[in-house]
Computed example of a mutant assay.
Amino acid sequence: MQHVNEIRAIMRDFARTTGLSDNSVKPRRYLWTDAFAVCNFLELYRESGQSSYLQSARALVDQVHLILGQYSDTDPRSGWISGLDEQSAREHPTAGGLRIGKPLAERSPQQSPDDRLEWDRDGQYFHYLTRWMQALTRMAVYTGEDAYQRWALELAQTAHQSFCYTLTSDGPMRMYWKMSIDLSRPLVDSMGQHDPLDAVVSYLEINANNSAHGILASNEQLEREIAEALSMCAGARWATDDPLGIGSLLIDTFRLAQLQTNFNISPPIALARLLADCEPGLQALQRSGQLAHPAQYRLAFRELGLATGLEAINRLNALLAEHPRQQALDREAKIRLERLEHFGRLSDTIREFWLETANQQVTPWRDHQDINSVMLATSLAPDAFLFIRQRMGL
Protein backbone atom coordinates (compact mmCIF):
# COMPACT_ATOMS: atom_id res chain seq x y z
CA MET A 1 0.00 0.00 0.00
CA GLN A 2 1.44 3.36 -1.02
CA HIS A 3 1.37 6.18 1.53
CA VAL A 4 0.71 3.68 4.32
CA ASN A 5 2.56 5.81 6.85
CA GLU A 6 0.50 8.87 5.95
CA ILE A 7 -2.74 6.90 6.22
CA ARG A 8 -1.78 5.47 9.60
CA ALA A 9 -0.87 8.93 10.87
CA ILE A 10 -4.13 10.42 9.61
CA MET A 11 -6.26 7.76 11.28
CA ARG A 12 -4.26 7.85 14.50
CA ASP A 13 -4.73 11.62 14.74
CA PHE A 14 -8.40 11.33 13.84
CA ALA A 15 -8.99 8.76 16.58
CA ARG A 16 -7.23 10.94 19.13
CA THR A 17 -8.71 14.34 18.26
CA THR A 18 -12.31 13.12 17.90
CA GLY A 19 -12.34 11.27 21.20
CA LEU A 20 -12.26 7.74 19.87
CA SER A 21 -8.95 6.71 21.42
CA ASP A 22 -8.37 9.51 23.95
CA ASN A 23 -10.81 9.36 26.86
CA SER A 24 -9.86 12.89 27.91
CA VAL A 25 -11.36 14.29 24.69
CA LYS A 26 -15.13 14.65 24.41
CA PRO A 27 -16.22 12.48 21.47
CA ARG A 28 -17.03 14.38 18.30
CA ARG A 29 -18.96 12.22 15.87
CA TYR A 30 -20.12 13.11 12.34
CA LEU A 31 -21.88 10.40 10.35
CA TRP A 32 -20.42 10.98 6.88
CA THR A 33 -16.83 11.26 8.08
CA ASP A 34 -17.20 8.31 10.42
CA ALA A 35 -18.53 6.04 7.65
CA PHE A 36 -15.35 6.63 5.65
CA ALA A 37 -13.23 6.30 8.79
CA VAL A 38 -14.67 2.83 9.54
CA CYS A 39 -13.64 1.70 6.07
CA ASN A 40 -10.18 3.23 6.50
CA PHE A 41 -9.60 1.28 9.70
CA LEU A 42 -10.76 -1.89 7.94
CA GLU A 43 -8.36 -1.21 5.08
CA LEU A 44 -5.46 -0.79 7.53
CA TYR A 45 -6.53 -4.06 9.17
CA ARG A 46 -6.67 -5.82 5.80
CA GLU A 47 -3.25 -4.49 4.83
CA SER A 48 -1.46 -5.15 8.13
CA GLY A 49 -3.43 -7.89 9.88
CA GLN A 50 -3.14 -5.86 13.09
CA SER A 51 -6.22 -6.44 15.23
CA SER A 52 -5.94 -2.96 16.76
CA TYR A 53 -7.31 -1.46 13.54
CA LEU A 54 -10.31 -3.78 13.60
CA GLN A 55 -10.89 -2.83 17.22
CA SER A 56 -10.81 0.84 16.23
CA ALA A 57 -13.47 0.18 13.59
CA ARG A 58 -15.62 -1.64 16.15
CA ALA A 59 -15.20 1.14 18.70
CA LEU A 60 -16.11 3.78 16.14
CA VAL A 61 -19.30 1.97 15.13
CA ASP A 62 -20.29 1.60 18.77
CA GLN A 63 -19.60 5.26 19.50
CA VAL A 64 -21.53 6.47 16.45
CA HIS A 65 -24.55 4.43 17.48
CA LEU A 66 -24.35 5.57 21.09
CA ILE A 67 -23.97 9.27 20.23
CA LEU A 68 -25.74 9.79 16.90
CA GLY A 69 -28.43 7.26 17.75
CA GLN A 70 -29.45 9.44 20.70
CA TYR A 71 -30.42 13.08 21.12
CA SER A 72 -27.47 15.39 21.76
CA ASP A 73 -26.76 16.66 25.26
CA THR A 74 -27.88 20.14 24.17
CA ASP A 75 -31.30 18.88 23.04
CA PRO A 76 -34.18 19.19 25.54
CA ARG A 77 -35.18 15.67 24.51
CA SER A 78 -33.18 12.70 25.74
CA GLY A 79 -32.71 9.04 25.05
CA TRP A 80 -32.60 7.10 21.81
CA ILE A 81 -34.11 8.82 18.77
CA SER A 82 -35.84 5.54 17.89
CA GLY A 83 -37.93 5.84 21.06
CA LEU A 84 -36.92 2.31 22.08
CA ASP A 85 -35.99 1.43 25.64
CA GLU A 86 -32.31 1.13 26.51
CA GLN A 87 -31.93 -2.60 26.00
CA SER A 88 -33.93 -2.72 22.76
CA ALA A 89 -32.16 0.35 21.40
CA ARG A 90 -28.73 -1.17 21.97
CA GLU A 91 -29.88 -4.30 20.15
CA HIS A 92 -31.34 -2.20 17.30
CA PRO A 93 -29.26 1.02 17.30
CA THR A 94 -30.18 2.02 13.74
CA ALA A 95 -33.94 1.49 14.08
CA GLY A 96 -34.53 5.25 14.36
CA GLY A 97 -31.89 6.30 11.87
CA LEU A 98 -28.83 8.33 12.93
CA ARG A 99 -28.25 12.04 13.42
CA ILE A 100 -25.91 13.88 11.08
CA GLY A 101 -23.89 15.33 13.96
CA LYS A 102 -24.13 18.98 12.91
CA PRO A 103 -23.17 21.60 15.53
CA LEU A 104 -26.47 23.51 15.62
CA ALA A 105 -29.80 22.16 16.84
CA GLU A 106 -32.31 21.23 14.17
CA ARG A 107 -34.78 23.87 13.02
CA SER A 108 -37.90 23.82 15.16
CA PRO A 109 -41.37 23.73 13.54
CA GLN A 110 -41.85 27.37 14.56
CA GLN A 111 -38.65 28.63 12.89
CA SER A 112 -38.61 29.87 9.32
CA PRO A 113 -36.24 28.08 6.94
CA ASP A 114 -32.83 29.68 6.50
CA ASP A 115 -30.84 28.14 3.64
CA ARG A 116 -27.50 29.24 5.04
CA LEU A 117 -28.12 28.08 8.60
CA GLU A 118 -29.63 24.78 7.47
CA TRP A 119 -26.20 23.52 6.41
CA ASP A 120 -25.07 23.72 10.05
CA ARG A 121 -28.25 22.38 11.65
CA ASP A 122 -28.68 18.80 12.78
CA GLY A 123 -31.19 16.32 11.42
CA GLN A 124 -30.88 13.28 9.18
CA TYR A 125 -29.58 13.09 5.58
CA PHE A 126 -30.50 10.11 3.45
CA HIS A 127 -27.15 10.07 1.62
CA TYR A 128 -25.31 9.97 4.96
CA LEU A 129 -27.42 7.00 6.03
CA THR A 130 -26.55 5.09 2.84
CA ARG A 131 -22.86 5.67 3.54
CA TRP A 132 -23.37 4.21 7.02
CA MET A 133 -25.21 1.22 5.52
CA GLN A 134 -22.13 0.67 3.38
CA ALA A 135 -19.82 0.88 6.41
CA LEU A 136 -21.97 -1.63 8.32
CA THR A 137 -21.98 -4.16 5.48
CA ARG A 138 -18.18 -3.89 5.37
CA MET A 139 -18.05 -4.55 9.11
CA ALA A 140 -20.22 -7.63 8.65
CA VAL A 141 -17.82 -9.00 6.05
CA TYR A 142 -14.58 -8.20 7.90
CA THR A 143 -15.80 -9.48 11.27
CA GLY A 144 -18.13 -12.24 10.14
CA GLU A 145 -20.67 -10.97 12.68
CA ASP A 146 -24.31 -10.94 11.65
CA ALA A 147 -25.35 -8.01 13.84
CA TYR A 148 -23.69 -5.46 11.55
CA GLN A 149 -25.58 -6.76 8.52
CA ARG A 150 -28.87 -6.69 10.40
CA TRP A 151 -28.22 -3.12 11.54
CA ALA A 152 -27.59 -2.12 7.90
CA LEU A 153 -30.87 -3.77 6.88
CA GLU A 154 -32.85 -2.11 9.68
CA LEU A 155 -31.34 1.27 8.80
CA ALA A 156 -32.34 0.83 5.14
CA GLN A 157 -35.90 -0.07 6.10
CA THR A 158 -36.22 2.89 8.47
CA ALA A 159 -34.63 5.40 6.10
CA HIS A 160 -36.75 4.37 3.13
CA GLN A 161 -40.00 4.43 5.06
CA SER A 162 -39.22 7.87 6.52
CA PHE A 163 -37.68 9.73 3.59
CA CYS A 164 -39.88 8.48 0.74
CA TYR A 165 -43.39 9.77 0.12
CA THR A 166 -46.09 10.47 -2.48
CA LEU A 167 -48.21 13.60 -2.61
CA THR A 168 -51.24 11.62 -3.76
CA SER A 169 -52.16 7.95 -3.52
CA ASP A 170 -51.38 7.37 -7.20
CA GLY A 171 -48.69 10.04 -7.59
CA PRO A 172 -44.98 9.53 -8.26
CA MET A 173 -42.75 8.69 -5.33
CA ARG A 174 -40.34 11.34 -4.09
CA MET A 175 -37.67 11.57 -1.41
CA TYR A 176 -36.94 14.32 1.10
CA TRP A 177 -33.42 15.74 1.20
CA LYS A 178 -33.33 16.21 4.96
CA MET A 179 -35.50 14.99 7.82
CA SER A 180 -35.82 15.94 11.47
CA ILE A 181 -33.80 14.02 14.05
CA ASP A 182 -36.80 11.89 15.04
CA LEU A 183 -37.86 11.45 11.39
CA SER A 184 -41.25 12.99 12.11
CA ARG A 185 -41.10 15.86 9.58
CA PRO A 186 -39.08 17.03 6.57
CA LEU A 187 -36.61 19.87 7.03
CA VAL A 188 -35.75 20.24 3.32
CA ASP A 189 -38.40 19.10 0.83
CA SER A 190 -36.29 18.90 -2.31
CA MET A 191 -34.85 15.57 -3.47
CA GLY A 192 -31.10 15.00 -3.70
CA GLN A 193 -29.99 14.37 -7.28
CA HIS A 194 -28.30 11.04 -6.54
CA ASP A 195 -30.28 9.90 -3.47
CA PRO A 196 -32.56 7.47 -5.37
CA LEU A 197 -29.52 5.96 -7.11
CA ASP A 198 -27.69 5.62 -3.79
CA ALA A 199 -30.78 3.90 -2.44
CA VAL A 200 -30.92 1.35 -5.27
CA VAL A 201 -27.23 0.48 -5.02
CA SER A 202 -27.20 0.31 -1.22
CA TYR A 203 -30.32 -1.85 -1.04
CA LEU A 204 -28.99 -4.23 -3.68
CA GLU A 205 -25.72 -4.56 -1.81
CA ILE A 206 -27.50 -5.29 1.47
CA ASN A 207 -29.70 -7.91 -0.20
CA ALA A 208 -26.63 -9.53 -1.80
CA ASN A 209 -25.01 -10.00 1.60
CA ASN A 210 -28.11 -10.99 3.56
CA SER A 211 -27.95 -14.72 2.95
CA ALA A 212 -24.34 -14.95 4.15
CA HIS A 213 -25.54 -13.60 7.49
CA GLY A 214 -28.63 -15.76 7.96
CA ILE A 215 -31.12 -13.14 6.79
CA LEU A 216 -33.36 -15.18 4.50
CA ALA A 217 -36.99 -14.29 5.19
CA SER A 218 -38.77 -12.67 2.26
CA ASN A 219 -40.02 -9.80 4.43
CA GLU A 220 -36.43 -9.00 5.33
CA GLN A 221 -35.38 -8.47 1.74
CA LEU A 222 -35.59 -5.00 0.26
CA GLU A 223 -37.45 -5.83 -2.94
CA ARG A 224 -40.25 -3.28 -2.42
CA GLU A 225 -37.76 -0.58 -1.45
CA ILE A 226 -35.64 -1.34 -4.52
CA ALA A 227 -38.66 -1.12 -6.81
CA GLU A 228 -39.74 2.20 -5.31
CA ALA A 229 -36.24 3.66 -5.50
CA LEU A 230 -36.00 2.55 -9.13
CA SER A 231 -39.27 4.33 -9.87
CA MET A 232 -37.61 7.57 -8.73
CA CYS A 233 -34.64 6.85 -11.02
CA ALA A 234 -36.80 6.55 -14.13
CA GLY A 235 -35.85 9.28 -16.59
CA ALA A 236 -33.32 10.81 -14.21
CA ARG A 237 -30.16 12.50 -15.40
CA TRP A 238 -27.19 12.05 -13.11
CA ALA A 239 -24.73 14.50 -14.69
CA THR A 240 -23.31 17.10 -12.30
CA ASP A 241 -20.35 19.46 -12.18
CA ASP A 242 -19.90 18.97 -8.43
CA PRO A 243 -16.68 16.96 -7.86
CA LEU A 244 -18.16 15.04 -4.92
CA GLY A 245 -21.28 14.24 -6.95
CA ILE A 246 -19.21 12.98 -9.88
CA GLY A 247 -17.20 10.83 -7.50
CA SER A 248 -20.37 9.37 -6.00
CA LEU A 249 -21.68 8.54 -9.48
CA LEU A 250 -18.43 6.77 -10.40
CA ILE A 251 -18.48 4.81 -7.14
CA ASP A 252 -22.09 3.69 -7.61
CA THR A 253 -21.26 2.56 -11.15
CA PHE A 254 -18.41 0.42 -9.83
CA ARG A 255 -20.59 -1.05 -7.09
CA LEU A 256 -23.26 -2.04 -9.63
CA ALA A 257 -20.62 -3.67 -11.83
CA GLN A 258 -19.39 -5.68 -8.84
CA LEU A 259 -22.90 -6.82 -8.01
CA GLN A 260 -23.11 -8.26 -11.50
CA THR A 261 -19.68 -9.93 -11.59
CA ASN A 262 -19.59 -11.16 -7.98
CA PHE A 263 -23.25 -11.83 -7.22
CA ASN A 264 -24.77 -12.30 -10.69
CA ILE A 265 -27.20 -9.42 -10.09
CA SER A 266 -28.00 -7.64 -13.34
CA PRO A 267 -27.76 -3.84 -12.88
CA PRO A 268 -31.28 -2.42 -12.98
CA ILE A 269 -29.84 0.83 -14.33
CA ALA A 270 -27.74 0.64 -17.47
CA LEU A 271 -24.06 1.14 -16.68
CA ALA A 272 -23.59 2.84 -20.06
CA ARG A 273 -26.09 5.47 -18.98
CA LEU A 274 -24.28 6.12 -15.71
CA LEU A 275 -20.87 6.26 -17.37
CA ALA A 276 -22.24 8.66 -19.99
CA ASP A 277 -23.47 11.02 -17.27
CA CYS A 278 -20.05 11.04 -15.60
CA GLU A 279 -18.27 12.54 -18.59
CA PRO A 280 -19.88 16.01 -18.88
CA GLY A 281 -19.04 16.89 -15.29
CA LEU A 282 -15.43 15.78 -15.68
CA GLN A 283 -15.11 17.81 -18.86
CA ALA A 284 -16.61 20.87 -17.17
CA LEU A 285 -14.26 20.46 -14.21
CA GLN A 286 -11.23 20.40 -16.49
CA ARG A 287 -12.40 23.43 -18.45
CA SER A 288 -13.08 25.42 -15.29
CA GLY A 289 -9.48 25.29 -14.13
CA GLN A 290 -10.77 24.69 -10.59
CA LEU A 291 -8.04 22.18 -9.84
CA ALA A 292 -5.40 24.81 -10.54
CA HIS A 293 -6.79 27.28 -7.97
CA PRO A 294 -4.89 27.95 -4.72
CA ALA A 295 -5.87 25.79 -1.76
CA GLN A 296 -7.75 28.57 0.05
CA TYR A 297 -10.35 28.64 -2.75
CA ARG A 298 -11.00 24.88 -2.80
CA LEU A 299 -12.91 22.33 -0.71
CA ALA A 300 -10.66 19.32 -0.25
CA PHE A 301 -13.27 16.75 0.76
CA ARG A 302 -15.31 17.35 -2.39
CA GLU A 303 -12.25 16.89 -4.60
CA LEU A 304 -11.09 13.85 -2.64
CA GLY A 305 -14.52 12.28 -3.15
CA LEU A 306 -13.88 12.67 -6.88
CA ALA A 307 -10.40 11.16 -6.51
CA THR A 308 -11.91 8.11 -4.82
CA GLY A 309 -14.48 7.81 -7.61
CA LEU A 310 -11.73 7.92 -10.23
CA GLU A 311 -9.96 5.14 -8.35
CA ALA A 312 -13.19 3.15 -8.64
CA ILE A 313 -13.07 3.50 -12.42
CA ASN A 314 -9.44 2.35 -12.46
CA ARG A 315 -10.54 -0.73 -10.49
CA LEU A 316 -13.46 -1.31 -12.83
CA ASN A 317 -11.03 -2.00 -15.65
CA ALA A 318 -9.18 -4.49 -13.45
CA LEU A 319 -12.47 -6.12 -12.43
CA LEU A 320 -13.45 -6.66 -16.05
CA ALA A 321 -10.05 -8.20 -16.79
CA GLU A 322 -10.52 -10.63 -13.89
CA HIS A 323 -13.92 -11.73 -15.20
CA PRO A 324 -13.48 -11.99 -18.98
CA ARG A 325 -16.50 -14.29 -19.38
CA GLN A 326 -18.82 -11.93 -17.54
CA GLN A 327 -20.50 -9.47 -19.87
CA ALA A 328 -20.71 -6.77 -17.22
CA LEU A 329 -20.44 -4.03 -19.83
CA ASP A 330 -22.10 -3.96 -23.22
CA ARG A 331 -20.43 -2.37 -26.22
CA GLU A 332 -21.76 1.11 -25.48
CA ALA A 333 -20.64 0.94 -21.84
CA LYS A 334 -17.14 -0.15 -22.87
CA ILE A 335 -16.90 2.83 -25.21
CA ARG A 336 -18.08 5.13 -22.42
CA LEU A 337 -15.54 3.65 -20.02
CA GLU A 338 -12.70 4.14 -22.53
CA ARG A 339 -13.68 7.81 -22.85
CA LEU A 340 -13.30 8.22 -19.09
CA GLU A 341 -9.88 6.59 -18.82
CA HIS A 342 -7.90 9.72 -19.66
CA PHE A 343 -9.45 11.47 -16.63
CA GLY A 344 -7.83 8.90 -14.35
CA ARG A 345 -4.70 11.01 -13.84
CA LEU A 346 -6.82 13.62 -12.06
CA SER A 347 -6.91 11.31 -9.05
CA ASP A 348 -3.15 11.56 -8.55
CA THR A 349 -3.24 15.31 -9.19
CA ILE A 350 -5.85 15.86 -6.47
CA ARG A 351 -4.23 13.60 -3.89
CA GLU A 352 -0.72 14.94 -4.39
CA PHE A 353 -2.01 18.49 -4.01
CA TRP A 354 -3.72 17.77 -0.69
CA LEU A 355 -0.79 15.75 0.62
CA GLU A 356 1.28 18.94 0.54
CA THR A 357 1.63 20.24 4.08
CA ALA A 358 1.30 23.86 2.96
CA ASN A 359 -2.09 23.16 1.38
CA GLN A 360 -3.35 21.78 4.71
CA GLN A 361 -2.64 25.04 6.50
CA VAL A 362 -5.34 27.11 4.78
CA THR A 363 -8.60 27.99 6.52
CA PRO A 364 -10.91 25.79 4.37
CA TRP A 365 -8.82 22.73 5.22
CA ARG A 366 -8.65 23.51 8.92
CA ASP A 367 -12.38 24.32 9.09
CA HIS A 368 -13.14 20.82 7.79
CA GLN A 369 -10.11 19.01 9.23
CA ASP A 370 -11.83 15.74 10.13
CA ILE A 371 -13.66 15.14 6.87
CA ASN A 372 -10.75 16.38 4.74
CA SER A 373 -8.13 14.18 6.38
CA VAL A 374 -10.31 11.06 6.52
CA MET A 375 -11.33 11.37 2.88
CA LEU A 376 -7.69 11.95 1.91
CA ALA A 377 -6.89 8.63 3.57
CA THR A 378 -9.77 6.94 1.72
CA SER A 379 -8.60 8.29 -1.63
CA LEU A 380 -5.10 6.93 -0.96
CA ALA A 381 -6.29 3.42 -0.01
CA PRO A 382 -9.94 2.99 -1.05
CA ASP A 383 -10.30 -0.77 -1.41
CA ALA A 384 -12.19 -1.50 1.83
CA PHE A 385 -14.59 1.31 0.94
CA LEU A 386 -15.00 0.41 -2.72
CA PHE A 387 -15.08 -3.38 -2.87
CA ILE A 388 -18.17 -5.44 -2.15
CA ARG A 389 -16.67 -8.60 -0.72
CA GLN A 390 -18.35 -11.82 0.24
CA ARG A 391 -18.14 -13.11 3.77
CA MET A 392 -15.03 -15.22 3.20
CA GLY A 393 -11.82 -14.22 1.46
CA LEU A 394 -10.92 -10.68 2.46
Rank of each mutant, 00 (worst) to 15 (best):
T137M: 07
W177L: 15
D85G: 15
L187K: 11
W151H: 14
E154Q: 12
L104M: 10
E106T: 10
Y165M: 12
A105K: 03
H127W: 02
G97H: 01
A159Q: 08
V141P: 13
T94N: 11
A135V: 01
L104P: 01
E145W: 01
M133L: 09
Q70Y: 02
Q193K: 12
D195I: 00
P109N: 10
A105N: 09
E145D: 15
T94M: 00
D115P: 00
L136Q: 13
S88A: 14
S162R: 08
G144S: 08
W80D: 14
L187H: 10
R77V: 05
L66V: 04
P103C: 09
L187A: 12
D75V: 03
S88M: 04
V64C: 13
A156T: 08
G101M: 04
R116L: 07
G123C: 10
I81F: 02
V188Y: 06
W177T: 12
E118T: 06
D115K: 06
H160I: 03
G97I: 02
W80M: 13
L104R: 04
L68S: 11
P186E: 06
Q161F: 01
T143L: 03
Y125I: 06
P109K: 04
L167I: 05
D120A: 09
R185G: 06
W132C: 06
Q134D: 15
S72P: 10
R90Y: 03
L129S: 14
L66Q: 13
S72Y: 00
T143A: 08
H127N: 15
R121Y: 00
R90Q: 09
T130D: 08
C164G: 14
T168G: 07
L129I: 04
T130S: 14
E86Y: 00
A156I: 05
F163H: 04
Q193D: 11
G83M: 11
P196Q: 05
A140Q: 05
K178P: 00
Q161T: 12
G101P: 06
Q124A: 03
L84K: 04
A105L: 09
T158A: 13
G97K: 05
D189I: 09
H160F: 01
G101E: 04
R185S: 10
S180R: 05
A147P: 07
L68K: 00
T166H: 08
Y125T: 07
T158Y: 01
R99C: 11
T166Q: 15
W177Q: 14
R174V: 07
Y176C: 15
A89P: 11
Q110F: 03
R138Q: 12
E118R: 04
G101N: 04
R90P: 00
M173W: 06
T94G: 05
Y128H: 15
D182Y: 02
L155D: 10
I67W: 00
Y176Q: 13
R90C: 07
W119C: 02
S180I: 01
S88D: 14
G97D: 03
R185V: 01
V188R: 14
A140F: 01
A159R: 03
H127C: 15
E145T: 11
S169Q: 10
L84G: 04
C164K: 05
S190R: 01
S162C: 07
V141L: 04
V64N: 14
W151Q: 15
G96N: 09
A105P: 00
M139E: 10
R116S: 07
